[in-house]
């Protein structure tokens, strides 16, 4: 390799091949109906197809902006936990996979916590980033959800969780399974404080995430057409050796079977959440019931304040 091939040739090539400044993704093709949508129109419509109403993937930051009043929110720093507790390695090291996901997403892990106002109501939001290892739940995610619950209790705010996850992060082995219990404890702390716990199921929510905090909402909403279930469709097909019914495990199917309260479009979501939080935190209703029979709030609050 001479300086000719290493330096001169690429420079010439770069000069000759200089293209006009046009991004190649001006158009978005709907994942459902296949219609082409101008990318700015698509983004302006919160990544919802104009033609069929299909709710596409929404970047986490955009989701938060759409939810909070005036697009203003504060993210909190999350507790650090040991990464790769099992030194897990399949065809690739988990620590490498994790690092790659961090670099690609510029996030620490798959769940972030923010607080602010929605519809004028004080809320804490914990939202999943599906792009980060499929939104899978390991210790860091469990810790984030618990931190969100604690913040909600301290701020006397409604707690809104927006999962989008394939389930437990198997690279953390049994510790990922333990998140099903750990996140449930967070839900209980919010409940004991008499605060609303609202879940917004987005595409997809499956496995251990569904089978824990995601199905424990006081009120459970879902975006249209989201896949929500415990077992994966392929696993079920292989077990029963039958074709699955149409619309199986979609939001509409869950609504029909009594598993969720409402299906809410992305556009209406912020208003709905504000309304529900307001209805559940109406000051005039205070003292009308003896409240949840909480066994531990005193113990919990004393430790929460210390932390």
């Amino acid at each position: 390799m001479s300086w000719l091939s290493e330096i001169v040739r690429p420079k010439i090539r770069a000069f000759v091949a200089k293209k006009p400044d046009i991004p190649d993704n001006l158009w978005h093709k709907c994942g459902n109906c296949g219609e082409m949508i101008f990318h700015r129109d698509y983004a302006g419509n919160a990544n919802v197809c104009h033609h069929c109403g299909f709710h596409g993937k929404l970047p986490l930051k955009r989701r938060l902006e759409l939810l909070f009043d005036g697009e203003e929110y504060t993210r909190i720093e999350l507790p650090k936990v040991p990464v790769d507790p099992l030194k897990f390695k399949d065809r690739k090291r988990y620590s490498d996979r994790h690092k790659d996901a961090q670099t690609a997403s510029k996030e620490q892990d798959a769940c972030i916590v923010a607080h602010g106002l929605i519809g004028g109501q004080n809320v804490v939001v914990a939202a999943f980033n599906f792009e980060f290892m499929g939104g899978s739940m390991g210790t860091a995610v469990g810790e984030a959800l618990y931190a969100g619950a604690r913040l909600a209790v301290l701020q006397k705010a409604a707690y809104i969780v927006i999962p989008s996850s394939g389930g437990a992060r198997m690279q953390e082995g049994i510790l990922s399974l333990m998140q099903m219990a750990r996140t449930t404890i967070g839900v209980q702390r919010v409940r004991e404080a008499g605060l609303p716990y609202i879940v917004v199921l987005t595409n997809p929510t499956t496995g251990g995430v569904t089978a824990s905090f995601a199905m424990l909402g006081d009120v459970t909403l879902a975006e249209p057409g989201a896949i929500i279930g415990f077992a994966g469709a392929r696993v079920i097909e292989e077990t029963i050796r039958e074709k699955l019914p149409p619309g199986f495990q979609r939001s509409e199917y869950l609504l029909e079977h009594g598993m969720i309260d409402r299906i809410v479009t992305r556009k209406e979501l912020a208003a709905e959440l504000g309304k529900i939080a307001q209805l559940l935190m109406n000051k005039k209703n205070r003292g009308l019931s003896s409240g949840t029979q909480a066994a531990t709030p005193q113990l919990f609050l004393s430790t929460a304040k210390k932390a």
């Binding site: 199905m215 279930g229 415990f230 077992a231 994966g232 696993v235 079920i236 077990t239 029963i240 039958e242 699955l244 019914p245 199986f248 495990q249 079977h257 009594g258 598993m259």
Partner: peptide, 9 residues
């Protein structure tokens, strides 16, 4: 993992 199990939550 079955259809009925999923339907019934």
């Amino acid at each position: 993992p079955g259809v009925g199990a999923e339907e019934r939550g």
